[in-house]
Lab assay of single mutants.
Amino acid sequence: MLSDEDFKAVFGMTRSAFANLPLWKQQNLKKEKGLF
């Protein structure tokens, strides 16, 4: 599990902003970052 700081560094957004994205968009971002 990423820390909040690492999460923001990897995804360029906060966890709450990420959580507001549609599920497909979350999955695409995870795949792009190799976290899926």
Rank of each mutant, 00 (worst) to 15 (best):
E32I: 10
M1P: 13
F11M: 09
P22G: 01
K8R: 09
K8T: 09
T14M: 02
T14A: 06
M13I: 09
E32V: 06
D6E: 14
Q26W: 01
A19Q: 13
A17K: 06
L23H: 10
T14V: 04
S3K: 06
W24E: 09
Q26E: 01
L21I: 03
A9Y: 07
K25E: 14
K30H: 08
K33F: 11
K25W: 07
L35V: 14
M13R: 01
F36Q: 10
G34M: 09
P22H: 02
F18R: 00
G12Q: 05
T14Y: 04
A17W: 03
S16V: 13
L23V: 10
V10L: 15
F11Y: 10
Q26D: 00
A9Q: 09
L35Y: 15
L29A: 03
T14I: 03
R15F: 07
F36P: 07
G34S: 07
A19G: 10
V10K: 07
W24A: 06
L29M: 08
V10E: 05
S3F: 04
Q26V: 02
G12I: 01
F7H: 01
L23Y: 13
F18Y: 05
S3M: 05
N20Q: 15
G12A: 03
D4F: 03
V10Y: 10
S3Q: 05
S3L: 05
K31P: 03
M13T: 02
N28T: 13
K33I: 13
K8I: 14
F36A: 13
K31R: 13
M13W: 03
K31G: 07
F36S: 09
K25N: 06
A19D: 12
G34F: 09
P22R: 01
P22N: 01
L2N: 06
A19W: 08
S16G: 09
F11L: 04
A9L: 11
P22F: 02
E5Q: 09
V10M: 12
N20E: 14
L2T: 06
K8Y: 15
Q27F: 10
D4L: 03
L2R: 05
N28K: 15
W24L: 06
W24G: 04
Q26C: 02
G34E: 10
M1A: 12
L21D: 00
F36D: 14
M1Q: 12
R15H: 07
K8M: 14
P22C: 01
F11K: 00
M13F: 05
L29F: 03
L35N: 11
Q27L: 14
Q27Y: 13
W24Y: 08
V10R: 06
D6V: 09
A9I: 12
M13P: 00
L2F: 10
P22I: 02
E32N: 07
N28I: 15
N20F: 05
F7Q: 00
T14P: 06
A17G: 03
M13V: 06
L23W: 11
L29S: 01
M13L: 08
F18D: 02
G12L: 03
Q27T: 12
M1K: 11
S16Q: 14
N20T: 13
R15Q: 10
W24K: 04
G12T: 02
F11P: 00
A17C: 07
L23F: 11
F36I: 14
M1F: 14
T14E: 08
G12Y: 03
K33C: 07
G12E: 04
G34T: 05
V10P: 00
E5V: 09
Q26A: 02
M13G: 00
E32M: 07
G34W: 08
W24Q: 08
L21P: 01
G34N: 09
M1H: 13
P22E: 04
N28P: 01
K8Q: 12
K30R: 13
T14G: 05
G34K: 06
S3R: 05
F7R: 00
K31Q: 11
G34D: 09
Q27D: 13
E5S: 08
D4H: 04
R15G: 04
F11V: 04
L29E: 02
N20G: 09
S16H: 12
N28H: 12
F18N: 00
G34V: 06
P22Q: 03
E32D: 09
S16W: 11
K31M: 12
D6Y: 09
E5L: 10
F7I: 03
L21G: 00
F7M: 02
F11A: 01
F7Y: 06
A19S: 10
K25T: 11
L2W: 11
E32H: 07
K25Q: 14
N20Y: 06
D6M: 11
Q27I: 15
L2A: 06
E5A: 12
L29V: 05
F36R: 06
F18P: 00
L35W: 15
F7D: 00
N28D: 14
K8E: 15
D4Y: 04
V10F: 11
T14Q: 03
P22Y: 02
S3H: 04
D4P: 05
R15N: 04
F7W: 06
W24M: 04
A9E: 11
A17R: 05
L29I: 10
P22D: 04
M1T: 12
L21S: 02
D4Q: 03
